[in-house]
Amino acid sequence: MTALPATRTSLAADLTALGLVAGDTVIAHSSMKAIGWVPGGQVAVVQALLDVLGPDGTLVVPAQTGGNSDPKHWSRPPVPEEWWPTIREHMPAFDPAITPSRGIGAVAESVRTWPGAVRSDHPHTSFAAIGANAAALMARHDLDSQLGEGSPLRALEDVGARVLLLGVGFDVCTAFHLAEYRVPMRKTEHSGAVRTERGREWITYVDVATDSDDFDRLGAAYEPTATILHGQVGNADARLFPVREAVAFATDWLRTNRHGE
């Protein structure tokens, strides 16, 4: 017999069983494919999360916009070099209200467009949030701190937020990037279109060259000793764990495994 689909109600029950509670602040990464068929799709998933978090909780998601970048770095797909000047001149400036996120999943994009959602103002690595502390968490996002001390990730660490992985692995755990700012990492140039007092401008800045290629290994090392709650949400394997603990572990792990200390 085919199992019944998950619903807003059953997902809320699964999230509660996992350990999510009213008043929590959580940064969520998810896969609708892993969660399974849900009447209402990603909207129902967001509703279930908000049902559990309640009016005092806050739901945060990445809302990244990698397409607002120098076309010379594009590879999936690349574009002809003769197009590059036109793209740089005419790429719309990042606008938190209207610029769509890219490559972060249907649930996260639904949060970004949710009534009352607040989005941080970064042209490449913004976050979006709904809930009691959304405005405070999104208030600061320094241009040269994509995922560092001047970003919402640090704010999430400070308030004792937790990470929720719904049907996805540690390779997409954005919180690990905060650790990259606490160990010696090379820096690189980033470019994109932004709004300024003078109007739209194409700008270039220098920031840490973040890299998630080894986050699966990092997560595998972290999990055995971590304060992780495991469960099933819909059809998805789920993990719930503290941002602060994960970042502290990642900082030590990166010092040893990327730098051999």
Rank of each mutant, 00 (worst) to 15 (best):
T174S: 13
A220K: 13
A209C: 11
Y181L: 06
L59I: 10
G36A: 07
A132H: 15
G160P: 00
V21R: 15
R244N: 07
G160Q: 01
D70Q: 04
L50W: 09
H29S: 07
I27E: 15
Y181I: 00
G131L: 12
V194N: 11
K33E: 15
G41K: 07
G66I: 05
P85M: 09
V243D: 09
E157N: 12
T99F: 08
H190K: 14
A179F: 11
A3L: 12
H177E: 04
A193T: 04
T65V: 11
R217S: 12
G260S: 05
G57F: 05
T86V: 14
E109N: 15
G148Q: 01
S101H: 01
D158W: 09
A209P: 05
V38Y: 03
L165W: 04
S151H: 08
V168A: 06
A44F: 10
A134W: 07
T188I: 11
G260K: 04
A155W: 00
L178G: 01
A3K: 11
E157F: 12
P77I: 01
W253E: 09
P85W: 06
A48V: 04
T65Y: 04
V206D: 13
G148Y: 03
A48Q: 03
P152I: 01
F241Q: 07
T7V: 06
H177M: 02
P55L: 08
A136D: 13
F170C: 07
P71Y: 05
H230V: 00
A226T: 05
L156M: 13
V118K: 07
R119V: 02
D237P: 00
T204A: 12
V208D: 07
F215V: 02
T58M: 11
V183R: 08
E245R: 01
P115M: 08
A6G: 08
T99W: 07
L15M: 04
T25Q: 11
V111L: 02
R140K: 14
F170D: 11
P123D: 06
A6L: 02
L11E: 06
R255V: 04
A161M: 03
H90I: 11
H122G: 08
F94M: 07
E245V: 00
M1P: 10
R186H: 10
T227F: 00
R162W: 07
E261K: 13
T16N: 12
R88N: 01
A179P: 10
V163F: 04
G192N: 00
E157H: 15
D14S: 13
M32Y: 01
A193F: 02
A250L: 03
E189T: 14
V43S: 12
G167T: 04
D211W: 03
G54D: 12
A246D: 01
L229H: 12
S10T: 15
T256M: 13
W74Y: 12
A12E: 11
A236M: 07
L49G: 01
R140V: 15
A34R: 14
R255K: 12
A17E: 15
M138H: 07
A93Q: 08
